[in-house]
Amino acid sequence: MMSLGCSSAPPLMPRATSTRTAIPGPTARFFRSRIQLVSRILTPLPGGDLLDVGCGPGMMVREILDSRPDAFHITALDRSAAMVEACARRMKDAGNAQALVGRIESLPFQEHYFDVILAMGVLEYVDATVALTELARVARPGAWWSSPC
């Protein structure tokens, strides 16, 4: 982790073993509220193949696995190998999930593969036109997308 020059500063992303772990602070509350919102939106969906692109350490993946354990086959993708490793640790007990290193600009999936696509906190860091074109390519007709900031 990059030092900000203040030895008493808290870590930028507190470590947690579960999305239900109480982590204080406005950043944690923001991430938790985003996870809760997406989780509520996913509730009425029947399930299917889900892509979480820009999965980070897998907090959303773990929430879905805990709340709807058999509803989705989850593919988590991030450009950071360290984030993919953290995500894989969070989903180690799930037989219906995989974590991969990859980029949103060149997704390693066939056309029309996913029923649900999550891209949270990703589009602002990439060429959005290229990324959205790739997401459209891998989305099945009628797929549900979410890209909350």
Rank of each mutant, 00 (worst) to 15 (best):
P24K: 05
E111P: 08
P57L: 07
I35M: 13
F72V: 04
G56I: 01
G121R: 08
I117T: 10
L51F: 06
G25D: 06
F72S: 03
V101L: 06
N96P: 10
E111T: 13
K92W: 02
V126Q: 06
L37K: 05
M60C: 09
V61Q: 04
L65R: 00
Y113M: 13
L77D: 04
I23H: 01
I35E: 14
D52R: 05
F31C: 10
E105G: 15
D78V: 04
C55F: 01
P44F: 12
A86E: 15
I64K: 01
I35D: 12
S33R: 15
K92R: 12
F109N: 00
F114S: 09
G95M: 05
E124M: 07
M59C: 05
G25F: 10
H112E: 15
E63A: 13
T75P: 00
D70P: 02
R89E: 13
V61K: 00
A22S: 06
R89P: 03
A94M: 02
V122A: 04
R40M: 06
F109W: 03
V61N: 06
I41H: 06
V84Y: 02
L37M: 12
A82I: 08
E105M: 06
T43A: 15
L107V: 14
L42Y: 01
T43K: 09
G54V: 15
P24E: 14
M83L: 09
P57W: 13
L45R: 00
A94P: 07
S39Y: 07
